[in-house]
Design a protein around this nucleic acid. Sequence first.
DNA 1: AAACCGTTTGACTATTTGGTCAATCGATTT
DNA 2: AAATCGATTGACCAAATAGTCAAACGGTTT
Lengths: 197, 197
Amino acid sequence: MEPTDTEKRILQAATLVFERDGFLGARMQVIADEAGISKASLHYYFRTKEKLFDRIFDDYTASIVPLLSTWEDGTDEWQEKVRHFVKGLMRVFSENSLLFMAQELHRDPKKLEPRMAKRRTGPNPFITYYEGLRAKGLVRDMDPRPLLVAMQSICAYPSMNPKMLAGSLRMNNKEYTAFITSYADDAADLLVRMMEK
Amino acid sequence: MEPTDTEKRILQAATLVFERDGFLGARMQVIADEAGISKASLHYYFRTKEKLFDRIFDDYTASIVPLLSTWEDGTDEWQEKVRHFVKGLMRVFSENSLLFMAQELHRDPKKLEPRMAKRRTGPNPFITYYEGLRAKGLVRDMDPRPLLVAMQSICAYPSMNPKMLAGSLRMNNKEYTAFITSYADDAADLLVRMMEK
DNA sequence: AAACCGTTTGACTATTTGGTCAATCGATTT
DNA sequence: AAATCGATTGACCAAATAGTCAAACGGTTT
């Protein structure tokens, strides 16, 4: 099932347009133009806009999965794991905007929830990992779930709502982009600090 | 300029529909139905969908402004201020979803950026406040900007992308809602911890 | 009771857009 | 060179929807 060259171009174009305009704002004609083909051809490869979106959604979630193994293997210290995971997550989120997926997940949960559920088997790897450290007395003795939420928030939000944050920081787009690059390290440090004894 | 009863009902209905469906997904007919009036009447009060959205947007940003005074007045200890601000922010975000506003700000920045800029005069109050504490040696000696970003992320993201977080935590909607209520306290503690010496 | 005026509405329009389809193209096989 | 077949497309359609407008409604003033 090698994706053909045309299919690749479609997926690239669709990702660009979906991220910029959202599912409802995206136009099949615009995606076709971006991919350099006709709208009819686009429908030949992906019969409907929803099927095209589903594919983008699946590819995206698949790109996050490898990061989860951070908590499962390797011999690094937990501080290193946190730094590695945070930087990896922020890189993914900066490359592909999560915003339009969150919006669509909110607007029509039934459409995508089953697809997400498929990815999740067993308990969350971070939770398991933290409970292990906690039992050994290596980290702060607390419920890891707020930590998980805080970690994902700190990684995801800055790229999801850049305009508001840039506003709070009194920065223009260029300044904000530069700031966020260095923020990854700071964020990792703050998270390590939250977990330390 | 007291808003009439009809106008209030329109704003209430529009908030509901915009939050649920986003700007592009919202239908003027649905908003009219929700408000118990005809679509023509809706257009009589707000000539276009954009003007209606702008009003909702302005009302929403106005509701956040009072919280910013947390950093400017009062005699509380800084830990108390952080707890107060975090809980206030999370309450606002849980009552009114930020997601559709972020989406619209991203899709058409030119439309809303001028409206946001008007609200922002002078430096960010938190930054100023933290620099004051820092000079007195009362908090950790670090750039407050990553702290500001982390604080807003921790407050906003859990209500912006509940489906994904609930998935990570292996919770259903009901469990997640309950969890987020108690999370406000945990989040405040974590943030205090980030700022402590 | 008639003129007035802010409010309300049903009916209508213009436009946008996802999706379809018959015809065509072009490379490969027979 | 003719048949085959996946890929491509221009032309088209049906549905959805933001916005308009003339008419009507109802309370108040003249």
